[in-house]
């Protein structure tokens, strides 16, 4: 599917539409070296693709820290409150509330213990805090990453299949304001990759 770069003409917005330029590297060190240069060249819509997380690449790419931990904390706190409310409602008070259907709580009297036995509620509070945190942690991580997305232009490239095996890639996308097919290709060549490929949209 992928067209060799040498055959295309240098006119932007010409059919078939371009997704971007793909440069292949053999080692994590080469990739990191190149990534720092792409960052410094001022590109914004670009990415590295690696078979495993490369230590220090976030810095070389200039990636800002994710807000995921803050979101997980909020979800965990929600779990804490939800677990307390669940137990207090079902075991400590006789209130009737509307939650889609009418629900009535029941103040259980168990061996003379107080209706609001907070110490006995702690294990379930703990478990639900963890449950809410973990579910939101994984769910939001995939959501923020835009996954699942079973289709992506990069999957058209046969070369790119090695991104999950043993090769390291830099992709500069065509939507980057600084992207000009010829100029960007020249720039990528200066990074000394083992191959450059044009990926169609």
């Amino acid at each position: 599917m992928a067209t060799p770069v040498t055959t295309h003409s240098d006119t932007p917005a010409q059919a078939p539409r371009i997704h971007g330029l793909l440069a292949e590297f053999e080692t994590p060190g080469d990739l990191m070296h190149a990534a720092a240069k792409v960052r410094d060249a001022g590109y914004r819509w670009w990415d590295c693709h690696t078979p495993f997380p490369v230590h220090g690449l976030d810095g070389a790419m200039g990636i800002k820290r994710t807000i995921l931990p803050v979101c997980v904390f909020c979800a965990g706190a929600t779990g804490t409150i939800a677990a307390f409310c669940l137990q207090a409602f079902t075991n400590s008070v006789g209130w009737t509330i509307w939650a889609g259907v009418w629900l009535t709580g029941y103040p259980f009297l168990i061996s003379g213990k107080p209706a609001m036995s907070l110490p006995a509620f702690i294990p379930v509070i703990f478990e639900l805090t963890i449950l809410f945190s973990a579910l939101s942690c994984v769910g939001l991580m995939f959501l923020f990453n835009g996954l699942p997305s079973l289709h992506h232009p990069l999957f058209k490239s046969n070369r790119f299949r090695r991104a999950s095996n043993d090769r390291f890639f830099i992709v500069i996308e065509a939507r980057d304001p600084k992207f000009l097919p010829k100029k960007t290709e020249e720039f990528l060549k200066t990074l000394d990759p083992t191959a450059i490929e044009l990926v169609e949209d």
Partner: peptide, 13 residues
């Protein structure tokens, strides 16, 4: 899930 080893993904992952 369409995982493609993106480093921006690895960062959150």
């Amino acid at each position: 899930l369409g995982w493609r080893g993106s480093n921006r993904h690895w960062h959150r992952y």
